[in-house]
Nucleic acid binder design. Structure first.
Lengths: 199, 199, 199, 199
DNA sequence: CATGAATGAGCCTTCATTCAT
DNA sequence: CATGAATGAAGGCTCATTCAT
């Protein structure tokens, strides 16, 4: 029964935690990082301000977890792609396409992450940030390609960084209205990088 | 003499302005955007708080101008390259190399611009930001190459964005200690992009 | 019990609110509107500066409510008179007398309201200010007198305004030491106005 | 020649002084007491900020003199009336009418004086303010009437205060749009007061 | 005398965090 | 555990006044 109780507590905890994170996500989307204020998150979540601190160390912790939650669907998608049977080239292409689409739908998220300059949490600088996780996963695809003799040998981490950021540059231009066609942009990245690295 | 007087005043004004900007630069470097506080800038500059507002509209204005001042040497360098007689390929390579070196020396600046999330001034989002200025200039180089029959026809703005951000990815990795050799990295970018676009 | 709890909280809230208003009143009296500074009010109330903003939107709100609280006893008195069975003439006389006495005791308040020029809250200009509320109530007394055939027909609002301000002129002179005797002043107003309006 | 020089200086001084006062008047009208800021007055006057302090002790001094300058035409008018051959009753009536008209044209001035609560300078409280000057002059008219056997004996200062403020109440209502007809309002004051005091 | 850059005390307001209930 | 009133450090900005030129 002790076991049971603890479990129940843990479940309730999880529920509250999720409640808060969902609220935080909404606030982050609606108000941007400027408006990401503990008070508002608490109100949105329907919990007391103090409760926030029962589940997250401080504002930064909450923000970090919120961002992670925002990216979660994309990461799951990415993982699915990376762990599939597709060829390395196809994996990259598929990732490119999905990234493009994800941010097309989650336009605001991109603005917040790239554009907002209010986060202490520095996703680029932090070694175990989503950014670096992604870079490593893409690097593994390049390694895979090289192992299969499809790509030239290379510094895969660097190449992955370049691939990811070049992609980001296109998404940025897309969001700013310079173009809206993944049919055009995805091949563009793919051509540049595949021509550059094909064995 | 009227002329003279006005000139003298303008010079003094300029002196104070520079004094403040230098102080602001130092504060920005030492304390990051978090610590970029008007009071501190004033103390560092050795002027009164109010004086800051005699030369800059508000905190944001000061911050923006400070950043511009930080990048100035790099922009001048970039312009020199872009306006030189070098071949398009060489221009890109030289830009790549200089960018690499600039941020090697100004490591902190990169952290501040890329990493800090405290700036309202959003260099990526703002259409006439240094970022877009650079993109446009690089695009012109791509156009030039295409006109000379060296590069394939392409959407030069997109390509320039990709080129710049791919570069940034490498600089980031360099700064995080993943590598320190421009001898290795510059050819990397160049290879990828030139293979990808050469006619 | 939920009910109880909420009630208790509301009571505590009310206590703090009153604490602040009393402090604000004291500051207003002691220091005038010039010295009506949020910091000082907080210290006087024995609460933190931030607490002020938990109970009042901003400085102006606090000031407005403070003034209202200052006048409250007088308004209650006035209402008692206006709603009594006294004859219109007696009502006016009684109002006159009570106003005289109220400001005799609250001398400082008169100075603050009439003399101080620091309030944004403009009691004369604002259509639903205490001033206009009083004018309307007095006007009703004049109307009553006219209906009863005691007073000539008249524009009661205008007459009420004149009556109130004429009164104010006397109180002002009283406060400045020109006279101190309500026995003399009240009949003065009454004579002038009643002679002027009696049917 | 020394004489001459000093005179010339005095004239220039007077010119600057007037320049400043005119500017101050304009600022006061256009921006209200809120916007009555030394900087702006200086700019409007076309002189340096420091110059203001060469001609006026401090902001309060300037404000006081500005207000006096605003009322000057009305005071001159009033004096003309008070020193004329008119009967006391006619003097009061004429004063009433002219006051009414003056503020009708100078609507903004009335708002500023009565409505604005930003002036340290307290025209009502200060014993040698325009207000008290006016009261005294009106009191002399009442005295004159009493001497001529037209009015009952009375405390003329008090009566004058009442007369002036009752008048103010009507002007206030006029300005707030409750009525616009001096043909109606002037007789109103006159009736009340004359009935109240006629011998 | 005039100037106007510099001053800096002063003030309002925000918001992350705590802690008594 | 949850609560939310209280906290108070922190920070941006204003503007009357001064003084060196």
């Amino acid at each position: 029964m002790e076991e049971q109780k603890r479990t129940r507590k843990e479940i309730l905890d999880e529920v509250t935690r999720t409640l808060i994170l969902d609220a935080a996500k909404k606030i982050l989307f609606d108000e941007g990082t400027q408006g990401f204020i503990m008070d508002r998150v608490a109100v949105q979540a329907g919990v007391a301000k103090g409760t926030l601190y029962l589940h997250f160390r401080d504002k930064d912790d909450l923000l970090k977890e919120t961002l992670e939650k925002c990216f979660e669907p994309f990461f799951i998608l990415a993982d699915t792609i990376f762990e599939s049977d597709l060829s390395p080239e196809k994996k990259l292409e598929e990732f490119s396409l999905q990234g493009y689409r994800f941010f097309e739908q989650q336009r605001k998220l991109f603005y917040i992450v790239m554009g907002s300059r209010e986060l202490k949490t520095d996703s680029h600088m932090d070694e175990d940030s989503p950014y670096w996780g992604l870079v490593e996963k893409i690097a593994r695809v390049f390694d895979e390609g090289t192992r299969q003799g499809l790509f030239k040998p290379m510094n895969s981490t660097k190449m992955a960084g370049m691939f990811l950021d070049a992609q980001g540059a296109l998404i940025l231009q897309q969001l700013l209205g310079k173009s809206t066609d993944p049919e055009e942009d995805v091949p563009l990245v793919m051509n540049v990088f595949l021509n550059g690295i094909r064995a």
